[in-house]
């Protein structure tokens, strides 16, 4: 029983991280209709940025997170403005391919610049944990979970209550509506993509504090982010929390009861099932 409780807690903590990983992907997908295959690679980049900040400038990853996010925002803004805006009206396949091309470029650049070694951000408190009854709560994971929830809810509030956020949501409905908010569409698209990448960067920071990073983690993180977005549904920004927690817990339970090698079967199998049975996500409308 204690084991089950521990597994559920682990899954939940992992799920929070998953939520923020998927948040940026879901935002860009829902608003710009770009399925960003490079999303995981941006998470990887964010992880490295924080690793460098911590290792060479001794900035704590949680304190450095805004800095990492800001740099990643700039990168995302520039990429959308200078590159992705050029193909935004092309068939959906071409946008998939171009982001895949970006994924390849980022991965190999990372391999050249950062080497293929595994890195972990290891602040002094990394090994500490809290005890809650029989359940152990690793401090770094708990903090990552907390930040993830704050970011996700913050994003939700931003989309609901600010002018820019409302313009972004209107763009998801249609571009003409967005113009009514008086925001230049090219800028708006770049802002949205920038936000998505900033979230990826933040997710990378959190990921780096609880797992190992190397240049090749991108593809599987993209795949997981997909699964989470689909399971949660794109319509509601809080959907990723549901999707993330769901996936985190299912993976932990599968690992415990069936075996480590089946964790991917479970998560991607569920993804396919959700797509077929409820394409608008667990929270989405039934049609």
């Amino acid at each position: 029983m204690d084991l089950l409780a521990q597994i559920l807690v682990n899954g939940t903590l992992q799920g929070g991280l998953y939520a923020v990983m998927a948040l940026g992907l879901a935002l860009v997908w829902g608003v710009l209709n770009i399925v960003n295959l490079a999303h995981g690679a941006f998470i990887m980049l964010g992880g490295y940025a924080s690793w460098y900040l911590y290792t060479y400038a001794h900035i704590d990853p949680f304190l450095g997170l805004p800095l990492t996010a800001a740099v990643m925002f700039g990168l995302g803004y520039g990429l959308q403005r200078g590159l992705l805006n050029l193909v935004i009206r092309a068939p959906m396949f071409n946008t998939l391919l171009i982001t895949f091309g970006l994924e390849v470029v980022l991965t190999y650049l990372a391999q050249l610049v950062f080497s293929a070694d595994f890195r972990t951000i290891n602040p002094p408190y990394a090994g500490n944990s809290l005890a809650w009854g029989p359940v152990v709560l690793p401090l770094a994971r708990l903090a990552a979970f907390g930040v993830a929830i704050v970011l996700t809810v913050g994003m939700w509030l931003f989309l609901l209550h600010t002018r820019l956020g409302r313009a972004i949501r209107a763009t998801a409905q249609n571009l003409v509506a967005a113009r009514l908010y008086g925001v230049e569409p090219r800028h708006l698209y770049a802002m949205t993509f920038g936000l998505g990448i900033a979230l990826a960067g933040a997710a990378g920071t959190l990921y780096g504090t609880v797992s190992q990073i190397n240049p090749y983690i991108g593809a599987s993180l993209t795949a997981k982010s997909f699964a989470i977005s689909i399971i949660g549904g794109l319509e509601n920004p809080l959907g990723v929390i549901v999707g993330g927690l769901f996936l985190g817990i299912v993976e932990s339970l599968t690992t415990l009861y069936i075996g480590q090698t089946f964790a991917d079967v479970a998560s991607f199998g569920i993804l396919v099932l959700v797509l077929i049975v409820r394409p608008s996500g667990l929270l989405g409308k039934t049609t």
Binding site: W29, A223, L271, V272, L275, I276
Partner: peptide
């Protein structure tokens, strides 16, 4: 039969997920 009912991105993602599942199976 079930997956080809999906369109666009959704089909692409479902097939991608299937290929991951097959490796694990």
């Amino acid at each position: 039969i079930p997956v080809l009912r999906l369109k666009g991105h959704y089909f692409a993602i479902a097939t991608l997920a299937l290929s991951q599942v097959m490796t694990a199976i």
